[in-house]
Write a protein that binds this DNA or RNA. Structure first.
Lengths: 187, 187, 187
DNA sequence: GGCGTTCTAGAATATTCGCGC
DNA sequence: GGCGCGAATATTCTAGAACGC
């Protein structure tokens, strides 16, 4: 019934419907995210990745490997041009791989991959991305942007000049802002 | 004459012959690289890049743009599978782009890059990579692993702070300009 | 002969040509990262915004207002469905407006806009976004994130950039101060 | 030590979501 | 679908790092 329903749907409908199904699998509700702080819904990328892996129509281009521990992009060109734009806002394999790395996926280095003219498939793995185990997805965490702590003690002469000018400008803006408020009150 | 000669060559011969020609242009000898400390030969990547750009057989896949200031990969898939393995030890577009970036090439933003269904070509640019100007190649330098000098780094941090303050000021001026116009309309 | 072949390979369309024109206006074609940090190209959003404003085919949906100081989205529905997906990776008016706000654009609240609810056009303005003045675009700054400059030893060049921006800000404050005094006398 | 190839990460902008006013 | 903004994720372009030669 799932397949029939999806076939009957338009393209967008397939994805939306599958996402809803996935939410029901995870036990997440789209109606009350701020009331019940239950299981956090997976990021969009992970959900889409799972859904496209589960779609049998894609198994010629991307599929689980034999043991279900890793997955491979079997047809790089078709995957890039056919699958990516259906699920994401681009058709760049590098953007897809950047997302995989951002979520901690690592490329699997097999022996055949080391050959010069590698016709072999691109293979990735993540300890919490396993075939038939959607409940593990919640443990996959996106890497956060590092916050830089900057403390500079020294400044050059030229820099000091610019900083002084900046202060003058800041005072000027404060004064004009005050004038603006005064005029507004007068009016 | 150059073109006619190249067309007459076979593929492998073309590359070797073109490399020899390129060396003659640069005034470098392949026989005594360590004896005469004259003009340094260009790195292999730059030489190969120039030669493949000059081969008319490749112009359907990679070509100079109108003004000869930039070049574009017109057919990404064919370029990856047909051209790359002929000149390099791989068939990965990402490795080719990594080399371009390593030598200071920059991608040229095109309007169509923002689109999902981007049929647009990948376009790159370098100030010393110009059509018909092989003598400029020697100015293209590979980036080296930089050892950061602490003084300069500190001043750069300070500069960054000032730049951030500048942006705040610019926003402040924009807001006040907006307020002024609003008050003028109200009056 | 080589030149002819390359020209035949080119597929530059109207958009590309417009972008080239824009780059020539900004003087960004000759960028020498290791020699001098020339004028930074405008962000993609600003470039696209300018180009779509300049396209006469869009003037039924978005256009400059009478004095060229502001612009209005005339047909919200058609703008959202026809123009946005042609230039961006979405069809959401709210995302477009978020970008406008991110770059300091403000909605113009005219009297007519305040009275009738949704019949009036959406009007925006920015002090550096004026009809026929593309050279002002470089002064429009994106909010929030810091710009990491690459080479620490080029701090002097960066310093000059900051100084130039300071001058622009100083002029802007002088002008606004003059406007304030004028308005005060008029009142 | 420099250069080439590969995999991953940094950095900036872009898109989405939701809050407070 | 207010309006402007902060925050998180998404997409893009470039750089870091490891390893081999």
């Amino acid at each position: 019934m799932f397949v029939l329903g999806c076939v009957a749907c338009c393209r967008l409908g397939l994805l939306d419907w599958s996402l809803l199904l996935l939410c029901s699998i995870f036990g997440t509700s789209m109606k009350e995210p701020s009331v019940s702080l239950g299981p956090t819904p997976a990021p969009v990328f992970l959900t889409k990745l799972w859904v496209l892996m589960e779609d049998p129509a894609n198994c010629d281009m991307i599929a689980w490997n034999t043991n279900g521990q890793t997955f491979s992009i079997l047809d790089e060109q078709r995957f890039t041009k056919e699958i990516l734009p259906r699920y994401f806002k681009h058709s760049n394999l590098s953007s897809f791989i950047r997302q995989l790395n951002m979520y901690g996926f690592r490329k699997v280095m097999s022996l055949e991959n080391g050959l010069v003219k590698s016709e072999s498939a691109i293979e990735f793995q993540h300890p919490f991305f396993k075939k038939g185990r959607p409940e593990l997805l919640e443990h996959i965490k996106r890497k956060v942007n590092s916050v830089k702590t900057e403390d500079a003690h020294l400044s050059q002469d030229n820099l000091q000049k610019v900083i002084n000018e900046l202060k003058v400008l800041q005072n000027g803006q404060s004064n004009m802002d005050f004038k603006l408020d005064t005029m507004r009150r007068e009016n």
